[in-house]
Amino acid sequence: MARVIVDVMLKPEILDPQGQAITRALPRLGFSGVADVRQGKRFEVELDGPADEAAISDVRKMAETLLANTVIEDFTVRVED
C-alpha cells in the first residue's frame, strides 16, 4: 500500500477570489506579514500496490483526465513518505 498525493492549484495567471478573500481576512485576525494566499485542492490516492513508476504514471493520467482541469489548473504528483 502506498499513498500518492496530487496537489492541484489554479494556474498563477488565473484569478483566485477565494484566496484573495482569505488574504484579506488574515490581518483582521491579527496575522501580519502575509503577502498572498492561493487556494488549491489536495487528493490522497491510496494504491493497492507499491508506488512504482507505472502506478505513478497512472496517477498522473488520472490527474490530467479528471482531478485537474489543465485549462486553468496545474498539478503535482508525489509519493507520500
Partner: peptide, 17 residues
C-alpha cells in the same frame, strides 16, 4: 461543454464570490 473541450476556456468562481 468546456470541461468536455467542445468549447475552449473554463468557467470559474464569480469574482465577487
Amino acid at each position: 461543454l468546456c470541461e468536455a473541450h467542445l468549447l475552449p476556456g473554463a468557467l470559474t468562481r464569480n469574482q465577487g464570490l
